[in-house]
Design a protein around this nucleic acid. Structure first.
Lengths: 348, 348
DNA sequence: CTGTTAGCGCCTTCAG
DNA sequence: CTGAAGGCGCTAACAG
């Protein structure tokens, strides 16, 4: 029945034209007569023809395989699943297909799947790198002229684009949000200054204050462990200030939870008596604390951005190592009341 | 630099052998001298050769593209993400790559991506069908001789294998588990008899009782809405019986939660004073109620099964429409105490 | 507008 | 063990 699959030549014969003509209609060339095109199309449908992209790719000089590779460190985590969905959306509508592989944080596996994808002629690669990935691991791909964009994590020294969350802008946005609610005494609680992420978020905190026309007060920045216990500790210190804050942006979600604990221990209800903004790094605690406003990057949006960036480079034909930073989305979940509303403010 | 990619002929010249020889080492033929093989391998590495699977596939008559397609109705749902991970695991270790596409329950999108995958020459397809999928939607693929296995949902009339959870066996297993704990008065609570799933689970309930040597009592089967409220209602009725049960298997998780609510309202602690088994359809409430024992199909395991089944068919060269039903895994989470232990009993 | 002629990179005989 | 030849399905020049 469908043993020998039908080829252009089959349909050429059946339609009484030449293979070239068929090829032309296949790629929607305007050089072909409208009625011929219709005839050919009909025959294709009747014979159940399916285009053989492999053959086409082989013939064409370039690597326009219409396949992009997507490798993810942990698809089990909802964040990365959504990332993949975002990629899939734009990739699909561009007529591409995506290879998806999970590495489970193993660099070895990652290298294997990338190699495998290369054999299949991917025209671009998006990767959320396994932890131990180094620039050298990506060298082979980038040197082959295949556009690569890393997402979520970043591989220093690799000649590829990368998409990470914009910690400073996100935090600044959070501060402006609080200022917009009328708060003037806004703290930044939790975390230790020894890691880069802390510095970025703290910088954003200052920028946000400045943008809102509020003064920066050194004593409103309270370091502590980046943990729930740290949050309790930090809010304790802050509330003992002569002029305690009425709102805070927290270093991360764990700290924010601790801050809520600490507030409740003082008879205050977070979200009502004191505004708390957490930094939701991995979308985990989505519905855990309804009273909590969170700053988080929308993984699906990030996936879409990554795919768009990649497609742009693919179409440009040249892989430019263009460093990019995603914008972070601020999701405001209003406290109090069942079915808390979700409002979204997107950054420019 | 790497503009004109290196081909077998390049490496043949560089290694001072013929292309045939190179081809032979590529497929690990024993017909080639060990030292020649080493030489060739070295040159390949030096020149950065990458195998062109597209060309190979084109040449070979059959469709051994080493690509399988995976289309999923909602990757956003953790269940399906895990399913994909399971597929990925076995597919990767078999040297295949997977195309992954999300349909968001749209049959149109589903048809598009399947068509697209076909153009790329997938050698098999796993699909968790969008809701409205009919046998006719899968006909084109199956008729082309491409093995197809559906997972989670099943498409009646389609000539393909399918993997669905074995409701009867799972429920029976749950009952036997409870009987093994010493319970003799075991109820089946919640759900309405008008859907097939109810009938399957209820049948399993009877089978489980029989297997445990316990009598089946009509009054221990209490129908109600398949909701949390339904669970409260059902446990209420059950406890008003002259001879109330000491344990129950619930129609689904929502009912189980309601049963827990109802028990607590009576001053009983689920998991201690009364054993509750829920049917966790979509892995959602994983850690929500530690006192709850759940029967659930492990999505990752299901993915692996699906992939294995598919690969078997691919290797057999012939797509047999072999209907298969997955076994359901019983995960026993022991109540009481932090960090509840997880024990797994697998069905045969 | 349509037909002809070459290959793309690889794999399989078939003889050396 | 190696070299030569042919072809997979498709496209890119050229000719008609």
């Amino acid at each position: 029945m469908a043993k020998g699959r039908v080829t252009v030549i089959d349909i050429a014969e059946a339609a009484g034209v030449s293979k070239s003509t068929v090829s032309l209609v296949l790629q929607g060339s305007p050089l072909v007569n409208e009625i011929t095109r219709a005839k050919v199309s009909t025959v294709m449908r009747e014979l159940g023809y399916v285009y053989n992209r492999g053959a086409a790719t082989l013939r064409q000089t370039s690597a326009k395989s219409k396949i992009i590779g997507m490798v993810v460190n942990d698809l089990t985590n909802g964040f990365f699943a959504e990332l993949a969905v975002g990629v899939d959306m734009v990739v699909q509508s561009a007529g591409f297909v995506q290879f998806l592989a999970n590495t489970a944080e193993s660099v070895d596996r990652q290298q294997e799947v990338i190699a495998s994808m290369r054999e299949h002629g991917i025209s671009g690669l998006i990767v959320s790198p396994a932890r131990a990935t180094t620039a050298k691991d990506l060298k082979a791909v980038t040197e082959a002229g295949i556009p690569v964009v890393t997402a979520v994590r970043n591989v220093p020294g690799a000649r590829c684009s990368s998409l990470v969350s914009d910690n400073a802008a996100g935090t600044a946005q959070a501060v402006r949000h609080l200022a917009g609610l009328g708060h003037t005494r806004i703290a930044f609680l939790g975390g230790f200054p020894d890691i880069m992420v802390f510095e970025e978020r703290r910088r954003g905190y200052e920028q946000g204050l400045r943008a809102a026309g509020l003064p920066f007060r050194e004593d409103y920045v309270v370091s502590s462990g980046a943990s729930r216990a740290g949050g309790v500790e930090a809010i304790g210190k802050a509330m003992r200030l002569p002029d305690p804050p009425t709102a805070t942006v927290c270093f991360n979600d764990a700290v924010a939870f601790g801050v809520c604990d600490g507030l409740r221990a003082r008879g205050m209800e977070p979200g009502r008596d004191f505004a708390v903004v957490g930094f939701d790094d991995v979308i985990e605690a989505k519905a855990a604390v309804p009273a909590l406003t969170t700053v988080s990057v929308d993984p699906q949006a990030m996936g879409m951005r990554a795919a768009q960036l990649l497609l742009k480079q693919i179409n440009a034909g040249r892989a430019e190592a263009e460093a990019v930073t995603t914008s972070v989305r601020l999701v405001v979940r209003e406290s109090c009341g069942a079915g808390h509303k979700v409002k979204t403010e997107e950054l420019a």
